[in-house]
Structures are given as C-alpha cells and as structure tokens.
Design a protein around this nucleic acid. Structure first.
Lengths: 230, 230
DNA sequence: CATGGGAATGGAACAACATTCCATCATTGC
DNA sequence: GCAATGATGGAATGTTGTTCCATTCCCATG
C-alpha cells in the first residue's frame, strides 16, 4: 500500500545502488583497480562521498556488487544446453573471458569466497558433472577443483594486469620474467629453464582450457560414466 | 678487498632485512594480515618507520621477502626423493600446510606471480612430471595446472582466514554459508542445495588433495607413460 | 689520534584513502 | 501547510604507506 506512487524518486539522475555500481564498473574497467576511490566515484557521479554511503555499506560491498553483476551477466549468457562436457568448457571459457576483460573481477573472486557469484559458478559446473554421470559422492570434490582452477587463474590474471597497467605490452613483460627464470642455476632449475622459452609466447587462454581438460580427463578417468561418448 | 672487517655492523641489535622480515612474519602470524603496518613493525623493532625503509623498498617488497622466506623453507624440507607421484603429493601437501599455517602467504601467492617462490614451485612440480614420463610438449600445461590449483586454494584459504579472525570458529562460519546456499531457489540451484549439507563438515586439506589427484589422474590419462606403476 | 663522509637511524611531516558526521534539502504522509 | 523521513554533499577524522631530514654512528684516511 505504501508502494503507491513510487515513480521516479527525486530527479532523474537520482542516486541508486545500480547507478553507483555501474559507475564503479566504468571506472574499474577504464582506469584499473587503483583508480576506484570514493572521491573519484563521487566526482564521476557529481555528488559527495557521503551520499554514496547511503546506498552502499562500504567499499567491499561495492566491489562485491560489481563483481556479482559481471558474473551474473556471464552466467545468463551461457544458459544454452550443449552436451555436458562442452557446456563445462563453454562455461569455463565464458568466465575466463569475462575475467580477462575485467581483471578486477579476478581480484575479487580470488579473495571473497562468500560472494553471491560463487554458488552460481558452483551450480554451473556441478549440475553439468551430474549430467556427465559423476557419482554423487564425487561431485563436490570434482566441482570444487574446477571452481578453484577458475579462481586461481582469475587471481593470477588480475595480478598480471596490475603490472601491465604501467609497463609495456604483455609479451615484453613475460619476456622479462622468462629472462629472470633463465638466469636461475640450470643445475637446480632444469625444468624452469626449459619452460622459460615457452613463457613469452604461450597463450593464457589456451593454457587455462588445457587445465580444464586435464581436470575433466581426471574426473572421467576416475568415474568412467555410463556414457562413453564424451 | 673492501670486504675486510665487515664483522657485526653496529650494535648487536642492528637492523637488517632479515631481522625486519623475521619481525614482520611474527606479526603476520600472530595478529593477521591487517596488523602489519610500518608503525607496528617499527614499534616491534624499537625503531622508526624511516629506518625500515633503508633496508626494504616498500611494503610489497617486505611481503614478498616474507613470502619467499616461508616457501623456501617448505621447499627445503621436501628435498627427499620418493616416487614421482608421491613426491608431487607431498610437495602439494607441504605447500598447503604452510599456507594453512600462514594464511597471509596465500594472499601474497595469489596476487604476485613474479615472486621468487613461483619458479621454485614450478620446478618442484615440473621436474617430477618429467620423471613421471609426461612428454615435454605437455609439461608446461600440466605443471601450470598443478601450480594454479595450489595458488587458487591459497587465495581461498587466505580469504577464509580473514573472516575467521573476528568470527566464531570455522565450522560455524561454514554453516552460515551453507545456510545461505540452502536458501537459494532449489529449482534453479539443485546442485548447490545438495552440496550445502556437505559444506560445514568437509575437510579443506582432503579436498585440496582430491583436486591434486584429479589433475594427476588427468595427466596420466592423457599421457599413459612407460611406467604403469604409479 | 682527530676528522670527514657515507651508512643508518628515528621521528616528524605529507598525501591519499575509507569512513563518519552533520547541516541541509527534498519529498511525502497527514 | 507541516512535521518526519529519505537523501544529499561536503567537511572532518583517523589510519595508512611513504618521504624528508636532522642527527648519530662507524670507519678509513690524514
């Protein structure tokens, strides 16, 4: 009854959590994680920092909302029902691409396991594993391994992005690290030495997917389901 | 020649990077990540914050040194040469236990891929996979999948620890999350619903190891080595 | 044995930040 | 119309990482 004439409250440019989150995402995407402060955000919204706190509990709350926003969009785009294994790969790649496009999402995911986005991701992987024929007792471990892989890559990607921001391009940066690795004692680090050469030219996305396939392979090897067709 | 009488410089309690890192680790371990500031550190060392900057570039430098310190100790303890697969599991568990004991290490690992500790971890896993008979072309992907799993769990563990700090015990905290998960729409989140019950009582360490085994299973399934004995 | 200069020190000062406070304004139910 | 509540915006507040700088210590050189 009280919700009668709740038309556009105040001016058309009234503040709201949605508008604040939207502005925050813009700042994060265009200028990076370090650029989001309540001052820049207030300036962007042409208001004061105090007003923002009326709609948002604190910075963590704001970042969580922004992260959930991005992830929810990804999950919505991936409703389609391909075969389970393909659906898992598609979901993983969708998440990777979103994290790659918004590196700050990676930072959030890797430090906030209680985010609303997490059960969504869990559901996405878990229900597909169910379809794949993974026995119930093994679903939790298998799903969490997939989720951990996504979150792990998310964190590393975000960390890399924090460096790229003020450095040269990605390949040059990886070459620097490869050079450091190549300078380690070859007797004690033979493997690192061998791999250093592949570092600058490797594709993060392909390596991420290779990891997903490895895990899926392990799951199928442990539980050869009733359907041998992958 | 110039390095002649460089005995104990200054007083016996002279500042040094080692002593600073040592003190930082003490603070991090006993009072958590949030407790480490240059002021508390200076108080702990009975000096001023300016003096610390003579030995340490900045806070990131300090945290990196502390992290490398802890990881280097773990790696040193695990030199032993069991069979490759067992060695990989032992290394993974060693890292998990260290991260579990020092959650702040997890935070660092999941946000700093250029740490000196990373190539050490890479070498640890990679050289064992070589022994396992994984072909050279597949070693990079397989190793990075194992490393990502460790780093992913590291980040999640650290995030959980940040919450426990001021809450009740761990089981109670997981029960809270499980309750939130259980309140989601069962029609849209059937899997999450089923898994919520297992959440409070599950063992992070076992689940971590299950993930490692899943990945190892995938590696072996993809590359059935010359040695069928695991 | 003095002494000058670089290595170290410690604490004050600075800038940036998240957050809180509060005086003010707009809107709405009465 | 008027009080009460919903929102606002900007000025404090307290804490942080970092810088600055006057001072102290030690060593090599005269």
């Amino acid at each position: 009854m009280a919700i009668k004439k709740q038309r556009a409250v105040r001016r058309t440019d009234a503040l709201s959590k949605e508008r604040i989150v939207e502005a925050a995402i813009e700042i994060l995407d265009s200028d990076g994680e370090g650029a989001l402060t309540f001052r820049t955000l207030a300036a962007h919204l042409a208001t004061g920092s105090g007003a923002i706190y009326w709609h948002v509990a604190n910075k963590d709350d704001l970042l969580a909302a922004a992260t959930n926003d991005v992830i929810a969009r990804v999950m919505a785009d991936l409703a389609g029902g391909a075969r389970p294994r393909e659906a898992i790969r598609a979901l993983a790649l969708g998440l990777f691409d979103a994290i790659d496009a918004h590196p700050w999402v990676g930072t959030q995911l890797s430090r906030a396991p209680w985010l609303a986005a997490i059960p969504q991701i869990f559901e996405g992987f878990g229900s597909r594993l169910e379809e794949l024929g993974v026995p119930e007792g093994a679903q939790f471990d298998a799903t969490s391994t997939l989720v951990i892989h996504v979150l792990g890559v998310a964190g590393q990607n975000a960390a890399n992005a924090r460096l790229h921001a003020h450095r040269t391009d990605r390949t040059a940066f990886l070459s620097e690290i490869a050079q450091q690795w190549a300078q380690l004692d070859p007797a004690r680090y033979p493997f690192v030495h061998r791999v250093a050469a592949q570092l600058p030219e490797h594709d993060d996305r392909e390596q991420f997917l290779a990891g997903i396939d490895l895990i899926l392979g392990g799951i199928e090897a442990a539980h050869p389901g009733p359907s041998p067709r992958t």
